[in-house]
Each structure stands twice: as structure tokens, then as C-alpha cells.
Amino acid sequence: MTTFPASGTWYLFDYGKVISTEPLAEYWASVLGRPVGGDDLDRLEELDARLWSRLNPRTLEVLDFLAAQGAHLALLSNMPEGMSHRYESEASWPGFFAARYFSGRLRMVKPEPQIYRHVLKGLGAAPEDVVFIDDSRANIEAAEALGMRVVLLREDTDLRQELALLGEPA
């Protein structure tokens, strides 16, 4: 079991539309309206992983800055299990995070409160010591209800400015 620092702020990032950009609309049109299985499912998982692998350079700049400052970084994503294993073995971005929590592995999803409690326990952090960054209002509201500080990330959000408003270095 990994032991994390007992004090200091944790920055808890979502993946989809926070670290990654939004996938192409054509992809979703290609999978709607019919059941999927077997080879089709394998192919769609491959396409899904590729489409979600386009990274958001603005978020990466903030991650670079926070990592250089020695900040405590963690990830909480509603990513499927297979995709999470793929990214951990093939992508560089998981290296930013001291702790990574994936819904597909945990069998819990955001915005259910138990996933946030699981993460807090795993980090050994009080809710007020966590800044949760996500693009979903429902996920943000659930984390905030537990006492976490939050940033709702939209396309026009200046993440550095939002962190500064929370009193965090950015």
C-alpha cells in the first residue's frame, strides 16, 4: 500500500474533457443504434482510446507547473477498465499522478459519493485538502457536497486563474 503525504493540497483531476479533449462527433455517430460485441467491441475500444488520447495542452501546462512545484497530483476518471490499463502502459500522462482511480476498476462511478470517499481514504486526505477539477457539473456538485474545493472546467476556463482564486499556486 502506498503512503501519501499527511498534509498539503491534493489536486484531483478528471481525465475526459479535462486532460483530454473531446472525441470527434463522427465516432459517436458510428456506434449509435446497434448492439456491439466481439470484434466490433474490440475495434470500438481501440477507436475510443485513440479519440480520447488527444490531450489538452492548457491542462498539461498546469500539470507541468504543479508537478514542478512538487504538488500532490491524483486522477479520478470514469474510464473503463480496459482503457485505463492501455493508457497506463502506453501513455505518458499517467506519470503525473501519484494516485490514479478508475471507475472501471473500482466498480463505482462519479458522481456517486462512495467513489469520492474511497479516493479521500486512499489519499489520506480531508475533503478540504482536495481540489477536484472536472468538466461535469454533477461530479463537481457531488465532490463539493462532501467538502472538497472544486473547479468546473469548461472550454474557456483559465485553470491557473481558478486555482489562484482558491488560494492555490498556479
Rank of each mutant, 00 (worst) to 15 (best):
S92Q: 13
V31P: 01
V18Q: 04
F97C: 12
E155G: 03
L166R: 13
L73A: 11
L24I: 01
N78V: 09
E88I: 08
V151M: 10
A29M: 11
T9H: 01
Y87H: 13
L165F: 04
L76K: 12
L153P: 00
R154G: 14
G104R: 11
D39R: 15
P5I: 00
F65A: 06
E26W: 07
R34G: 09
D64I: 04
R100P: 06
R50L: 08
Q161V: 08
K17A: 06
I115P: 05
L24T: 07
M148L: 15
A98Y: 04
E45F: 07
M148E: 07
F65Y: 13
S92E: 15
V62A: 13
Y116D: 11
M1L: 06
M83G: 03
V131L: 05
E162K: 15
I19R: 08
H118V: 06
T9M: 10
L51V: 00
Q114F: 06
V62R: 13
E46Q: 15
T21I: 10
S136Y: 02
R34N: 14
P57G: 04
P57H: 02
A6W: 02
M83V: 09
H118A: 05
E162R: 15
E90H: 09
R86M: 10
L60P: 01
F4G: 00
D64E: 13
L123W: 11
G147D: 11
A49M: 08
I115C: 07
Y11T: 05
K17G: 00
P5N: 07
R43M: 11
L51P: 00
L123M: 12
V62Y: 02
P113Q: 07
R86T: 10
A68N: 09
L76A: 11
K121M: 09
A138D: 14
S53N: 13
N56K: 04
G82H: 10
D158C: 14
S89P: 00
T157R: 06
L47A: 12
P23M: 04
E144G: 01
E22V: 07
L153N: 02
E141G: 00
G37E: 14
P23D: 07
E144A: 13
T2P: 15
P127D: 02
A25I: 06
E141K: 05
E26G: 04
K121Q: 15
T3L: 09
T2A: 14
R137T: 05
W52Y: 13
L73G: 04
E144D: 08
E22W: 09
G82K: 12
A49N: 14
E128S: 08
D42F: 02
D156H: 14
F4H: 14
M79N: 12
A138W: 07
P127H: 02
R58M: 05
L165V: 04
L51S: 02
L76G: 09
L51K: 03
V18C: 04
N139I: 01
H118G: 00
D48Y: 14
S92A: 15
D135M: 11
L163P: 06
D39Q: 14
G147S: 08
D48A: 11
L106N: 03
A142Y: 08
I19A: 10
Q114K: 15
E88L: 06
L152E: 07
D14K: 14
L32E: 15
G16I: 00
P127A: 04
R54H: 11
K110G: 01
D40H: 12
S20N: 01
F96V: 00
P111C: 09
L165C: 05
G104N: 06
P35F: 12
R154D: 04
I140C: 08
A143H: 03
